[in-house]
Every structure is written in structure tokens, then in C-alpha cells.
């Protein structure tokens, strides 16, 4: 087994790695490029997927962005999932491991979606204990991502306060998805700018940018975080505002549907990288 040193991600822009782009990524000379994958897609015994990831990992840092842990869910952690995740962490030595402030399994059924939670003291306590246990099981810090919200759930605190408190209780960091902030603000009626300003910069370990689409029935009053379109202009505006304040952070262009060509995706990546590079020059 190859062993790597595991440096942190550069404060540059990366892309979500898609099988369609394996060859192009391997051949790419792009400076500072890093890759992110959902570990669940690599929970196989062997074969080409793992081999591609291995080849790419030898050239580039990677981040594992989990969707199956169900940190906020009612079921105990799935031992098979944890074991498989740990095996991937050991093999690929990712610079970062992240998960979601959400739940995705209940009663032995896996939903492969990110379900929301009420922001209450009870939920905060439950999540904090689970993140703590998850970090202990993995033996490392994780980042947790803010969800995209489609339901105005009765809550006791604002999301920034909820997330900051989670970090303070568990030592985890934040993966701030700026598109999720925009979508949630649109859907539940808060000010996305105030939200973004309220997140302490030192807690942010990574940023996500993705595209959203209007709901087919409800139109723009309900935006869906589809990862199926380019990053929208107002999300870029929020992103620049964030980077101006906190400085450069590793930033991922996420695309999981309507996968564009590698060149197109790298064009979007260059846009984010420009914002980061300009900030690095200023700093």
C-alpha cells in the first residue's frame, strides 16, 4: 500500500471528482487543483474506481465528503459504513474528512438524502454527542456542512449560532456551503449576507459552491440544491463577501448532475481560484 504524507488542502479551488473526468484530472497540469469525493461511492472491495482514485491521489490532495453517516439521525452508526470509511481514510490519507448537519437513515433504511433537524437544545446536544463519537471512531477532526433547508422548522436558535456551538462543543470545524446558505435564506426567509457574516472565520475549514434550480411547481420561492447547474451569480457575490472577510479557504466546485465537460468545470473552478488568489496577494 502506498503511504502519503497528508498536508492540508491548499487555500485554492478544487472540484468534485467524477468518473467521467478521471483521465482528464490525471492528465491536468492545473496548479493547486485538489479533488473531493463521496467516500460512499468508493466503498467497494477493489476494481478500477479505487485504482483511479489511487493514481489521482498520488498527484493531488483529496478530501472525503461523506453523505452516509447520518450524524443527526436516530439510528446508531452503521458499523460497516464506519469500517469502510476508516479503510478509505487509512488508504488515501485525505487532507480533510467532512460530513453533514443532517440525517439520512432511520429504522435500518438508508435514504441517501440529507434530512433537516430542528435547531433546538435537544438536537444540538444529540448532534454534539454524535459528532464527538464519530470523530473518536475516526481518530480525527471532521468538518460539518450546513444543510440546504426546504422547510421552516420551528427552532430555538439561528443556524450560525447552532453551528458555532456545535464546533465549540466538539472541536469539529465547518464546511460552509455558500449555495446552501443562499438556498435556505431564499426558502425560509432570512438574510444570507448576515448569516455569512456571522460565521467566525477561524471555524471555516472549507467552502462549497454549487448550483441550484427553481422547483418545478413552486418556482423561485422554493430553490433546490441540485448540484446540477453552474454556480449562480448571487452565490458568487456572497462568496466574494465571505473571502474578503475571512481570507482564502479551500473552495470546492460541486457538481453531481448534468455533469459538464472537464474544461467547463475547470472554467468555473478558475473563477473561484481567481477570488482566492487575489485575496492571497492582498494578504
Amino acid at each position: 500500500m502506498v503511504s502519503y504524507s497528508s498536508p492540508p488542502l491548499p487555500p485554492r479551488a478544487g472540484i468534485g471528482l467524477k468518473p467521467e473526468h478521471y483521465r482528464a484530472v490525471l492528465d491536468s497540469a492545473a496548479d493547486g487543483l485538489w479533488l473531493e469525493v463521496h467516500p460512499e461511492n468508493y466503498m467497494v472491495e477493489g476494481g478500477p474506481r479505487l485504482a483511479w482514485l489511487e493514481a489521482i491521489r498520488q498527484l493531488r490532495p483529496i478530501s472525503l465528503h461523506g453523505v452516509g453517516a447520518s450524524l443527526g439521525g436516530p439510528d446508531p452508526f452503521d458499523p460497516d459504513h464506519l469500517r469502510a470509511l476508516k479503510r478509505l481514510v487509512d488508504r488515501y490519507q485525505p487532507a480533510l474528512v467532512s460530513e453533514h448537519v443532517a440525517w439520512s437513515a432511520a429504522g435500518g433504511r438508508y435514504f441517501a438524502d440529507l434530512f433537516p433537524l430542528p435547531r433546538t437544545d435537544e438536537a444540538l446536544c444529540w448532534l454534539a454527542n454524535r459528532i464527538d463519537a464519530f470523530q473518536s471512531a475516526l481518530g480525527r477532526q471532521i468538518l460539518v456542512e450546513n444543510p440546504s433547508i426546504y422547510l421552516p422548522i420551528k427552532s430555538e436558535m439561528d443556524e450560525p449560532d447552532f453551528l458555532v456551538e456545535l464546533c465549540q462543543r466538539t472541536g469539529c470545524g465547518l464546511l460552509l456551503d455558500v449555495n446552501n446558505v443562499y438556498v435556505s435564506a431564499n426558502n425560509t426567509g432570512f438574510d444570507a449576507g448576515i448569516y455569512v457574516d456571522a460565521i467566525p472565520g477561524h471555524l471555516i475549514g472549507e467552502i462549497h459552491l454549487a448550483g441550484h434550480e427553481a422547483d418545478a411547481k413552486k418556482g423561485r420561492s422554493l430553490l433546490i440544491d441540485t448540484h446540477g447547474a453552474p454556480v449562480a451569480e448571487p452565490v458568487w457575490v456572497l462568496y466574494r463577501r465571505l473571502i474578503d472577510r475571512v481570507g482564502s479557504r479551500p473552495t470546492l466546485i460541486e457538481r453531481d448532475a448534468n455533469i459538464p465537460t472537464f474544461e467547463e468545470l475547470m472554467g468555473e473552478r478558475a473563477q473561484a481560484d481567481q477570488v482566492l488568489q487575489r485575496e492571497l496577494e492582498l494578504a
Binding site: 460512499e40 452516509g68 460497516d80 459504513h81
Partner: peptide
């Protein structure tokens, strides 16, 4: 419905 925490 799916049970394992990966759809692969």
C-alpha cells in the same frame, strides 16, 4: 428500499 449506507 436501500439499507446499506452506500447506493453502490
Amino acid at each position: 428500499p436501500p439499507q446499506r449506507r452506500s447506493l453502490v
